[in-house]
């Protein structure tokens, strides 16, 4: 199980690095929002990994909250981008 945890952690780290690269490069603010949305999803994945490996369930509510925060964030930014013209 520990070996699997290291493999999954490695994959998630690589994924987060790629998403952060896109967030830094942009070019537009929408690209950054999208990339940060993916980073949030990866953070959620890491929380699940933590729960599975350490056999607890404390992060579940955090998981729900993360999905809602990501939603509100990207909708707000998209709205500003559309209205700014």
């Amino acid at each position: 199980m520990t070996a699997v945890a290291y493999v999954v952690g490695g994959i998630l780290t690589a994924a987060a690095a790629l998403a952060l690269y896109r967030a830094v490069r942009g070019p537009s603010i929408l690209d950054r929002v999208l990339a940060l949305d993916v980073v949030l999803a990866i953070v959620g994945a890491a929380l699940v990994l933590n729960m599975v490996v350490n056999r607890h369930l404390d992060n579940l509510i955090l998981l729900v909250t993360i999905s809602l925060v990501g939603f509100i964030g990207s909708v707000t930014v998209a709205r500003f981008v559309t209205d700014r013209k």
């Binding site: 999954v8 994959i11 994924a15 690269y21 537009s28 999208l34 599975v52």
Partner: peptide
């Protein structure tokens, strides 16, 4: 777990390699 993590990796690869915003959205 590995399948779920690979989906994140696929999103990362898609974000970097796809050419424009709307294509990247599908990966995300």
């Amino acid at each position: 777990l590995i399948g779920g993590a690979l989906m994140s990796l696929a999103a990362g690869i898609g974000l970097v390699r796809f050419p424009d915003l709307l294509s990247r959205m599908h990966a995300a």
